[in-house]
Simulated assay, not measured.
Amino acid sequence: MANHPAAEIFVDTHLVQRLLREQHPSLADEPLLPVANGWDNYIFRLGADHAVRLPRRVSAAQLTANEQQWLPGLTSNLPVATSAPVLAGRPSEAFPWPWNITRWFDGVEVSLQPRDRNTALANQLAGFLNVFHQPAPPGFPYNAVRGVPLEERNDAVRDRLASGMVPHAARVRELWEAGLKLPPWPGPALWLHGDLHPGNLVGTADGSTLQAVIDFGDLTAGDPATDLAAAWLVFDQNGRSAFRAALGSQYDGDPCVWGRAQAWAVCMASALLSNSDDHPGMYLLGSETLMEILTDVPDWL
């Protein structure tokens, strides 16, 4: 069944305008339009160039704080634009949690275009990861569901596969169990986006350019295979081959990284299929990703 969490605070344009007047008055008179009410954030478009993102619940407030603390430094030299905070909002009497003002991107969510068009984005997404996947310092934000050893996600994945919500569950379980047998990432904990699916990628209208990587709420560090699951979440077979080739030799020191990446794709696809029956777009993403996994012809073995 769907598991869309209820908002713990109601946010409307009047509240956002109050926050802007109090903390960023130079933007307070810009037109303001609500555009999304997701799992973690309310999103408003602010004028032509900005967006305002406010947590819907207390658990997401810490994710916003992580973005404020880490993203400005992590994203300053990336080859692709991001939703890193442009201006930070602080907790106040009007709103108890941190909130952000980010850039607004006029492109198209990559999840809305056919997968065969995404091959054009392979080089750019690989370039983003090759720069972003750097060793993280002590004190990086811990995330219990991203970047961790696969064994720590085993109970959740098995529950989803037993739920009846995941097609071809027996074969999917075999692939998952194969991933569990692989050795863990041998290197240092690398910075991870943590939720690198096509709904968090913005492309140009013609599909030729990756305009931005957005929503770093799952920012953490650990096994890069977590982000490399994008090979199945974003691409078809041709796109996967192009994506892997564009990454070059960065992960060659770990011959099992792509096997674990496929297992991470199983983990994420099963979550989408089990929890998105009230969100047809995310359910479709889970279904398409599962078919890519099941029909894949691995080129890394």
Rank of each mutant, 00 (worst) to 15 (best):
A246Y: 06
R260F: 00
A212N: 07
D252T: 03
S249P: 08
L182P: 11
I214Y: 10
T220W: 06
E177S: 09
P224W: 00
A245V: 13
T220P: 07
L228R: 02
Q250G: 12
L228T: 11
D215V: 02
P184T: 15
W191Q: 03
V213A: 07
W258Y: 15
Q237P: 07
G248V: 03
A230M: 10
A205H: 14
H197I: 10
R240E: 13
L201Q: 07
R260H: 09
A261Y: 12
L192G: 03
P188A: 13
L228H: 02
A229I: 05
G194E: 03
F216A: 07
W185C: 08
A205R: 13
D252A: 14
D215E: 08
A221Y: 01
G248K: 12
G239F: 09
T204C: 04
G194N: 11
F243D: 10
A229N: 09
A189D: 07
L180C: 00
V202D: 10
P224M: 02
V257N: 01
D218S: 05
G239C: 09
Q211R: 09
P184W: 09
L192R: 00
L192K: 00
R260T: 10
A189W: 03
G179A: 00
D195R: 02
W191P: 03
V266W: 01
F216S: 04
L233A: 06
A205P: 11
L196Y: 12
I214L: 14
G179S: 03
V202K: 06
L233K: 01
A261R: 01
S241N: 15
G194C: 12
L247P: 04
W191A: 07
D254V: 10
P188H: 08
T226A: 13
G239K: 13
W191V: 02
D206A: 09
G187A: 12
I214K: 13
R260Q: 00
D195N: 07
F235D: 06
L180E: 00
